[in-house]
Amino acid sequence: MITLIGKELAKEGVSFVFYGAAEECSDCRFKASCVDSLKEGHRYTITEVRDVEQKCPIHECEKVKVVVVENGEFTILTDSKGIFEGSSFDFNRKGCSNKDCDFRDMCFPEGISKEEKGFYVKDLGKFKDCPRGNSLEKCIVKIHD
């Protein structure tokens, strides 16, 4: 998928979460190719940076570059049932009352919403440090397009 991103951020391998379009974007002639193809709240990774630049008043150096992005990968902690590399999953983590847990961002990662569908890229093995004693598996996952 092609989009535009601030010139300073346009580097292969950079991941970002799209939080929605700025107010100034509503009248921009590049809106369709810049923000309309992105889904709010999702993480993307830049896979290619092209040599095309455009002016954009909302970015630091007032320039954006054309980039190719794909859905980003996440390292997550999940219930240890049914994890096979390449298999699909529904991300439907149940709530956890431990708001101060050091690992909370892996159980509820930013950029992936509840009931999202994706697939397991890699199983990183059992995770034994859950303060609640839950049986968890550490995995790399990717969301379907």
Rank of each mutant, 00 (worst) to 15 (best):
Asp102Lys: 15
Asp79Gly: 10
Thr75Asn: 00
Gly82Met: 06
Glu60His: 07
Val64Thr: 11
Phe103Trp: 13
Gly72Cys: 07
Glu48Met: 13
Cys107Gly: 12
Cys61Thr: 11
Val69Leu: 03
Cys61Met: 11
Cys56Ala: 02
Lys81Ala: 06
Val67Cys: 01
Pro57Met: 01
Arg50Cys: 07
Phe103Cys: 10
Lys94Asn: 05
Gly72Asn: 09
Glu70Val: 10
Asn71Ser: 06
Cys96Gly: 01
Lys55Asp: 09
Cys96Pro: 05
Ser88Cys: 01
Asn98Ala: 10
Cys56Tyr: 00
Arg50Phe: 14
Glu53Ile: 03
Cys96Trp: 07
Ile83Val: 14
Glu70Cys: 04
Cys107Asp: 14
Glu85Gly: 03
Thr78Asn: 11
Ser80Tyr: 09
Lys65Gly: 02
Thr75Ser: 01
Phe84Ile: 10
Asn98Asp: 12
Asn98Arg: 12
Asp102Trp: 14
Thr75Ile: 15
Asp102Arg: 14
Phe103Ala: 13
Val64Trp: 01
Val68Gln: 04
Gly82Arg: 12
Val49Leu: 03
Phe103Ser: 11
Lys65Phe: 05
Cys56Met: 03
Gly82Phe: 10
Asp79Leu: 04
Phe74Glu: 08
Asn71Met: 10
Phe91Cys: 03
Val64Ser: 02
Gly72Thr: 08
Asp102Tyr: 14
Gly82Lys: 12
Asp105Thr: 14
Lys99Trp: 09
Gly86Ser: 05
Gly72Met: 08
Lys99Asp: 11
Arg104Cys: 04
Glu70Ala: 03
Arg93Ile: 08
Glu60Gly: 02
Lys65Ala: 00
Pro57Trp: 03
Asp105Gln: 12
Gly82Ala: 06
Glu60Asn: 08
Met106His: 13
Leu77His: 05
Ser97Arg: 08
Val49Ala: 00
Ser88Phe: 05
Phe103His: 12
Phe91Leu: 07
Glu73Ala: 05
Cys107Ile: 15
Lys99Tyr: 14
Gly86Tyr: 07
Lys55Met: 01
Glu62Gly: 01
Lys81Cys: 00
Arg93Thr: 08
Asp79Asn: 15
Phe89His: 13
Asp100Met: 14
Lys63Trp: 02
Asn71Arg: 15
Lys55Ser: 02
Gln54Asp: 02
Thr75Ala: 01
Thr78Phe: 07
Pro57Gly: 03
Glu73Gln: 11
Cys107Pro: 15
Met106Cys: 08
Val66Tyr: 06
Glu73Cys: 03
Val49Pro: 00
Ser97Pro: 09
